[in-house]
Amino acid sequence: MKILVCIKQVPDMESKFKVDESGTWYAKTDLAWRMNEYDEYAVEQAVQLKEQCKEGDITVLCIGSDQVKETMKKSLAMGCDRGAHIKDDEASGKEPFEIAGVIAEFAKDKDFELIFTGMQSQDRGSGQVGILVGEMLGIPSVSTVVEFSYEGGTLDLKRELEGGIKACVKVSSPAVITCQLGLNTPRYPTLPNIMKAKKKELLSIDIGDLLRVEPRQETMKMYFPEKKGGGLVLEGEAADLADQLIKILKEKTGVLA
């Protein structure tokens, strides 16, 4: 079984962000980078499926500068077999339709039985790429999956809806699955697997060889939202902060009365 997992490298969301000189994206300096959280579930599900089937070949695909190879190595250490690095120093400016176009162009003649993506990226959060890849390849896609089982080409899935409700869905492979948080428990790579991952194939392809679609939208501006909360900010020593907060709670809420 051939499986494709699509991942993205994103900044740690706790980072201090700055807007870059162009004014249309965040500055990429002084940031800690990691695998998009949703994609960790995608990688884990692919590896679990391979383990279940006792055979399989997992390609992990990532679009970006050479820096994304670090994140790709993590997914190789988690159990993916080979990497396809689509080299693009301008990846952050690509909109979801272009990203999906590149992935579909890569995948179109490779007979992947399953394609896993995260349901969205933590930075853009568009939630479009996985579904668009399915549309472009003409195969079904199911989004926001929190339970997954596979048996002889049939997928039993649960989609997460609002309020803790799930929708039970069946679909046949080939298919695209977009993974929601909580789908599984992503493993930590072990040291031996990190060593093994260094020897795995990591193919580099230029973005120009795969980008065949035109963008349909453009980022005009990026900025920090206006602080509208106007809440009180308390800083200092723990004991002092606790006293201040207790005073406020007594004054403003009936809770400590």
Binding site: T24, G125, P215, Q217, M220, M222
Partner: peptide, 19 residues
């Protein structure tokens, strides 16, 4: 233009549609 959140709502982005 449409305004959308970026990076867990830490930033905002203005987007212009090309269609």
């Amino acid at each position: 233009n449409m305004v959308v959140p970026v990076c867990n709502s830490k930033l905002r982005r203005e987007v212009k549609a090309g269609t």
